[in-house]
Design a binder for these strands. Structure first.
Length: 863
RNA sequence: GCGGGCGUGGCGGAAUCGGUAGACGCAACGGACUUAAAAUCCGUUGGGGGCAACCCCGUGCCGGUUCGACCCCGGCCGCCCGCACCA
């Protein structure tokens, strides 16, 4: 018996697959009419090497792709590189390597690693976003959006990352820090390019309802991010001194009679104007700014305000005056940057009112409360109820009162019902070199102009220097000088490049026909889109996935393709984690330097070299700093890639984190060997041979059909771990069968079982599966073999095992043919010896029979 | 604070229609093979009691619905993730 040798088998079969072109997806025109399946994993950033997390991600996608191929779909499973980005420039600055060299070198390494994983990719469609052929088309798409007014330029306050020397989108600022650098983000005024994603706010929210194969969590996150609310925008006229009214936004117009002040954000133009003349106001605003975003959460939101001395008139009562404050808790970039405060029904307003002695006037009466005695203490009342103390609104429910207040505001001309979003337009300008140049030139005479189509791509120059921070394109001696496409005069190129999230917001469309002259070939996109199954990390729940949905919609509206949603199914897979270990002095040590032993219920670790005790730390995401990383190469070297692929999918549900353990990968390796042993050690009958009525053989056939059913359902339901468990169980069953001297019937059954088994393991362990398939003389490649069918009749059990309960406690079990009638089951159950013992001296009140499942005998004291 | 998810053996996890809780794997223990070890194979393994047949307890906690609840309902506790002064 020869042991399965992955080091020989893996390269061998990979070469065979490549030579046969088995993973080539057909062109759309050749495949038209055939059912298609587009399986896609989020393409990687070429950071240098593949990590175990990539292995899990691509192995999952590969299971789906191989499974669907076997099920007869024409499958598109492509791969590319999200290749622009800052790491390349940092490498250039730190090590003097050109970003292009660094990027393409990394791609070469990672491509090789991916190929060694045996992932069933159509490599003929590969591209990198830093290929001029790709980003040139992206420039064409950008100009299309520009022409339609969806890309525009505006001066505004932007998030500036002082470490990366670039602007960040709102989505890229996390807790006031840059998402990559972790630096405290500053506010700067700059002229920037924006994509008008807010035009699609409603559409993007409404579209979420159609995404029934997306995780609820991601849909909710996107909905919250877009943050739609409806309410009233209304104008407060000033009592004196100013002509222009103050515009505020509220979602609670029903509480207008509870207003006790009006407040504006420190950045509000009114506040700025006051500060110019009032040093105390200026000092207050400066204090608010110092607080800033980062400190806000530490301080847990203490309310501070400055009374401007101005007053506005209440819209429902000309004699009612409200003071105007500047308050630190008002945000300039939401609504109008100004509010009216109703302390009784808003907690922030209440805190503020209590601090500054402003009136608290309840105007919503909770159900069952007494209007004469209802008071607000430390907690604002935000629940349902009826308006009171509210003039014409009295007696109305909250929702009715809102509508009535809006109607009055509109009738009297001081306000209107509006919908407001948290979502801002997408700022896409980045002051970096290694990105897609924005294809615009600025002419002193003609203004900003699109670069003509025949001059695309606007290619990045190679001769750039990274000796100082900032954008090398800005400093380049010649690159930015261009002729004006309109007047031919001197013009200057835009030196900003596009946010790399633009690159990843349409790459899945390009895969459908990566050679097309136009950015997206309509027929190809219409055949393959939408992506049927997209797989990646949940960290992209809002950024990438929202941008991609927006861009797809924008292109669909421009008749570039039919699909409005890019990803029909989304799966967010968990991370690969590992225990971490620290020495007594606090230094992290690598897993392979540590020996862990189990002592009763506790585990202890020691450093192998010195025997010193080691502290077992948390199980967390693999990271270099914690030194809890295992490298895919070393694992593949020791166990083969099939074992590695199998393990990352076998130990936990795919959406959950999986904990990498030495024992676990060894278990996966053992499974491979046991499977091979079944194929290698014994003769098998031809799969077509008759099985007859040999009991063991029949039972094996039944088990095989049950296994096919279980695996089919497990893969379709993304329950890979459960599916793999069934393979283990099936193998245990095979092991239990007599090996030597088996009957011809059993040999025939084994032949059928192994033929199915080879095909069932193929998505998970494709190399071993080919070797096994060849061993039993399977036709062609298992990668091209059809998925086995199961016979539902055979997959179902012949006999049912029914538990028999007495008063809900299990007291015995009976075996009956499937479908045995309830009366018969009841008779059998009552006759069971174990059951009889528990009926002694009691009388049967009732018997519940669920056919093929359970019999429950309800008893009581003897009459 | 708001939203989403999750609590099952020593560990990862099964049980997705309300019907035998703990499949499968890991770890551990016992045994076979071996001069020995590794590898492999066989067996045991939720807790407690009993020589045994068996019995009792058990899915975070408290209560409810039901013949029957890990599953449904109400109320707590804990953990993870996302958003967070969004008017």
């Amino acid at each position: 018996m020869a042991r399965y040798n992955p080091k020989e088998a893996e390269p061998k079969w990979q070469a065979v697959w490549q030579a046969a072109g088995v993973f080539r997806a057909p062109d759309a025109e050749d495949a038209a009419g055939k059912p298609k399946y587009y399986a896609l994993e989020m393409f990687p950033y070429p950071s240098g090497r593949l990590h175990i997390g990539h292995v899990r991600n691509y192995a999952m996608g590969d299971v789906i792709a191989r499974f669907k191929r076997a099920r007869g779909f024409s499958v598109l499973h492509p791969m590319g590189w999200d290749a622009f980005g800052l790491a390349a420039e940092n490498a250039a600055m730190e090590r003097g390597i050109h970003p292009k060299t660094w990027t393409y070198d990394n791609i070469a390494v990672m491509r090789d690693q991916l190929k060694r994983l045996g992932v069933s990719i159509d490599w003929s469609r590969e591209f990198a976003t830093c290929d001029p052929a790709y980003y040139g088309r992206q420039q064409a798409l950008f100009l299309e959006l520009y022409k339609r007014g969806l890309a525009y330029r505006k001066e505004g306050v932007v998030n500036w990352d002082p470490v990366d020397h670039t602007v960040l989108a709102n989505e890229q600022v996390v807790d006031g820090l840059g998402w990559r650098s972790g630096a405290v983000v500053e506010k700067r005024r700059l002229t920037q390019w924006f994509l008008r994603i807010t035009d699609y706010a409603d559409d993007l929210i409404d579209g979420l309802k159609t995404l029934d194969r997306w995780p609820e969590k991601v849909r909710v996150m996107q909905e919250n991010w877009i943050g739609r609310s409806s309410g009233l925008r209304l104008n407060f006229a000033f009592a004196a001194g100013r002509d222009e009214p103050l515009s505020v936004y509220t979602t609670r117009p029903d509480t207008l009679y509870g207003a006790s002040f009006v407040a504006v954000a420190p950045d509000h133009p009114l506040a700025q104007e006051i500060a110019a003349k009032d040093p105390a106001a200026a000092a207050f605003i400066a204090e608010c700014r110092r607080g800033g975003t980062s400190e806000a959460e530490i301080e847990a939101g203490e309310k501070k305000g400055y009374d401007t001395g101005l007053e506005v008139i209440h819209p429902f009562d000309p004699n009612w005056r409200l003071p105007v404050w500047i308050a630190n808790f008002i945000l300039m970039d939401y609504g109008t940057g100004a509010i009216f405060g109703c302390p009784a029904h808003d907690q922030r307003d209440l805190d503020f009112a209590r601090k500054y002695g402003l009136p608290v006037r309840p105007v919503v009466l909770p159900p069952d409360a007494d209007p004469a005695s209802f008071e607000i203490a430390d907690e604002a009342y935000v629940g349902p109820g009826r308006a009171f103390n509210s003039g014409f609104l009295d007696g109305l429910e909250v929702a009715e009162a809102k509508a009535a207040a809006i109607a009055r505001a509109e009738a009297d001309g001081f306000g209107e019902g509006v919908t407001v979003y948290r979502l801002r337009d997408w700022g896409v300008s980045r002051q970096r070199y290694w990105g897609c140049p924005i294809p615009i030139v600025y002419c002193d005479a003609c203004g900003p102009l699109a670069v003509p189509a025949d001059q695309l791509p606007v290619a990045l120059p190679d001769d750039v220097a990274f000796d100082k921070p900032g954008n090398p394109l800005e400093r380049h001696p010649t690159w930015k000088h261009a002729a004006c496409p309109q007047c031919g005069g001197k013009a200057t190129r835009e030196t900003d490049t596009l946010d790399t999230f633009v690159d990843s917001s349409w790459y899945f469309l390009r895969f459908t026909n990566p050679a097309a002259a136009r950015p997206v070939d309509r027929a190809s996109a219409d055949y393959w889109m939408p992506v049927d199954q997209y797989i990646g990390g949940v960290e992209h729940a809002v950024l990438h996935l929202l941008y991609a949905r927006f861009v797809t919609r924008a292109l669909a509206d421009d008749d570039v393709l039919a699909a409005r949603e890019p990803f029909a199914g989304l799966f967010t897979q968990g991370m690969v984690t590992h225990e971490s270990y620290r020495r007594q002095n606090g230094d992290w040590v690598e897993p392979n330097e540590v020996e862990v032993v189990q002592e009763g219920d506790t585990r202890r670790a020691t450093l192998i070299e010195t025997g010193e005790p080691v502290v077992i730390g948390d199980t967390e995401k693999m990271s270099k700093s914690k030194r809890n990383v295992v490298s895919p190469e070393e694992i593949a070297e020791a166990y083969g890639v099939d074992a590695a692929r199998l393990f990352v999918m076998s130990d936990s549900p795919p959406e959950r984190d999986v904990q990498w353990t030495t024992g676990g990968i060894q278990g996966a390796w053992r499974l491979g060997n046991r499977i091979w042993d079944e194929f290698d050690s014994q003769p098998v009958g031809a799969p077509g041979a008759a099985v007859g009525d040999d009991a063991k053989a029949v039972e094996l056939i039944r088990s095989t059909h049950r296994l096919i059913k279980a695996l089919t359902e497990a893969i379709e339901g993304f329950r890979f771990n459960s599916g793999i468990a069934r393979i283990y169980a099936f193998l245990n069953e095979l092991k239990g069968l007599p090996a030597a001297g088996a009957s011809p019937a059993l040999l025939a059954a084994r032949g059928q079982a192994l033929s199915a088994l080879a095909r069932l393991i193929a998505p998970f362990m494709p190399h071993l599966a080919e070797e096994a398939w060849a061993r039993i003389g399977g036709e062609g490649l298992v990668a091209q073999a059809p998925w086995p069918d199961y016979d539902p009749a055979l997959a179902a059990d012949e006999t049912a095992t029914l538990a028999v309960q007495v008063n809900g406690k299990r007291r015995g079990e009976i075996h009956l043919p499937k479908g045995t009638a309830a009366a018969e089951a009841e008779k059998m159950a009552l006759a069971d010896a174990g059951v009889q013992r528990h009926l002694d001296g009691l009388s049967v009140r009732k018997v519940i029979v669920v056919p093929d499942r359970i019999v429950n005998i309800v008893v009581g004291p003897a009459q």
